[in-house]
């Protein structure tokens, strides 16, 4: 599904990732490890000749085909125009989904906000807007960059349910939330200073010895949950 072969730039060094068909992924790593950079390489925002999507070279894909294959949801909604409303934003995002804009709005309980300009939404509301946009875009593979940052507990749960569900096809999720990573159960890629430190099954990642190796004593495992050891 996704192949990145020995990619290097100023931030990343010698990254090789290979995801098989229908394999989802969790991308973990400390701040500045290069997670978002890797995501941008995978979706073509950063040029490279090392990416293959669904058996085709990314740089040879036409713009439309590329959009059908991959989408990237950044951590923050970036929008220049002051007056584009939530609904208009979602109208622009609807590409390959069988859902229409109103259905996506209701799905995420955004009805009351639909006609507000995106710029006036709170960061949590913007986060949900982007999630709705990813559902409407419905690319074969979607990369979510910290989809649960900025969210209150109830919205976090809402997003978690959505990420788990099959309204989204294949997904790569970048996060700092170990519980989310654990619960979703996908394969894990852990990055450190621009390099792949760990790339294997979920279970192996959460083995005590591995956690100890990666996080030292900063993570505690209590009753099946992972908490920061304050």
């Amino acid at each position: 599904m996704l192949k990145i072969k020995r990619f290097s730039n100023a931030i990343l060094s010698n990254i090789t990732v290979h995801l098989k068909k229908d394999e989802n992924l969790i991308l973990l790593g400390s701040n500045g490890a290069g997670k978002s950079t890797l995501a941008k390489v995978a979706c073509g925002i950063i040029d490279s000749d090392r990416v293959e999507l669904f058996g085709e070279k990314l740089e040879h894909l036409g713009a439309k085909k590329r959009a059908e294959f991959i989408n990237y949801i950044p951590p923050k909604l970036e929008i220049f125009d002051d007056y584009i409303s939530l609904r208009e934003y979602l109208e622009l995002s609807r590409l390959y989904s069988s859902l229409n804009v109103d259905e996506a709005i209701s799905l995420l309980n955004l009805d009351a906000l639909a006609d507000k300009p995106c710029k006036t939404l709170s960061s949590g509301e913007q986060q949900l807007t982007m999630l709705a946009s990813s559902i409407l875009h419905n690319a074969k593979l979607t990369i979510f960059d910290e989809p649960t940052a900025n969210l209150d507990p109830s919205k976090t749960l809402q997003v978690y349910e959505m990420l788990k569900s099959d309204v989204i096809k294949n997904r790569i999720i970048i996060t700092h939330d170990l519980n989310l990573a654990h619960k979703l159960g996908y394969k894990i890629l852990y990055m450190q200073e621009g390099e792949v430190e760990f790339f294997d099954e979920n279970k192996k990642f959460f083995e005590a010895s591995n956690l100890e190796k990666l996080f030292g004593s900063s993570i505690k495992h209590i009753d099946g949950y992972f908490v920061v050891n304050l």
Partner: peptide, 9 residues
């Protein structure tokens, strides 16, 4: 919206 968003769409 943004250049990246336009590109991705």
């Amino acid at each position: 919206t943004s250049y990246d968003n336009a590109f991705l769409k």
